[in-house]
Amino acid sequence: MPKVTDEYRAARRDEIADAALRAFRRTGFQATSMADIISESGLSAGAIYGHFASKNALVMAVAERIVGSRVADVERLAALDPMPPPPRVPRMLVEGMVRDLGSTGVMLQLWGEGVTDPELRTLAASVLAELRRTLGRYVALWHERAHGATASGAHEIGVAQAPLLVSAVQGYVIQATLVEDFDGDAYLDALERYFPA
C-alpha cells in the first residue's frame, strides 16, 4: 500500500475544511451536520472521520488556518519599510478573513456558538489572544520605528491598542453581517482617519 504523504493529508484536510465552510455558509453552523459536510465534500464518512473526529474539530482546524494566515499577513506588513500605520491593519485582516471565509456571517455564528459551547469559547478566546499578541507586537514595532519610542514604551502602547484594533475588526464583522446598509469601506476609511497612530 503506498504511503500517504504529509502534503496529501494536509491537502485533504483543507479540502474537507473548505467543504465545511460551504455548508456553514449555506445552512448556518448549528444546522450543519457532519452528514451535510460529508455530502458537500463528496468524500466518504471514513475519509472525513479519518481527519476530523467531530464538527468542532473541523471548526478548530479552520480557525487555526485562518488565524495563521492573518498572523502571516501582519508579519508581512511588519517587514515593510515603512510599515503601514496600525489603523490600516484591520482592513487587511477583514479582507483576508472575507477572502478565506467567503462571508463575515460564518465568523459571527461561531462567536455566538461560543457563548454556550465551552470548547468553542476556548477556541474563540485563544484566537482573540493570538490576534491581540500579534497586533500588540505590530503596534509596538511601528511606534519604535515611526516615533522612536523606547521598547518598553512601545510595548505599553501595543498592549493598550491591540484590543481596540481587534474590536474594530469584530465591529466590522457584526455590522457587515447584521446591518443591511453597512458601508464597510467607509467604516475602514474612518478607522484609518480617526484611530490614533
Rank of each mutant, 00 (worst) to 15 (best):
A186L: 13
H51I: 00
Q175R: 14
F29R: 08
R13M: 03
I37F: 03
E75Y: 04
L165Y: 05
A140D: 13
A57K: 13
E7M: 05
R137C: 08
G50Q: 07
T177M: 08
A47K: 01
D183P: 10
R76N: 03
M83W: 12
M60Q: 11
R22P: 02
R76C: 05
I48D: 00
H147V: 14
T27F: 10
L43K: 00
P84K: 15
A78N: 14
E15C: 06
W142Q: 08
E144Q: 10
Y172F: 14
I48H: 01
V71K: 10
K55Y: 05
A197K: 12
S126W: 11
D81W: 11
V94A: 02
G171P: 09
V67K: 02
S103R: 10
G46S: 06
P163T: 02
F195Q: 11
T5V: 03
A162K: 12
M107T: 14
Y194H: 09
E15T: 15
G153N: 09
G96P: 13
Q30P: 00
A19Q: 01
R65Q: 10
A151S: 07
R132W: 06
G114P: 09
Y172A: 10
V94M: 04
V139Q: 15
I157M: 15
L110P: 08
A47G: 03
Y8N: 11
D6S: 06
Q170I: 07
R26D: 03
G46T: 05
D189I: 14
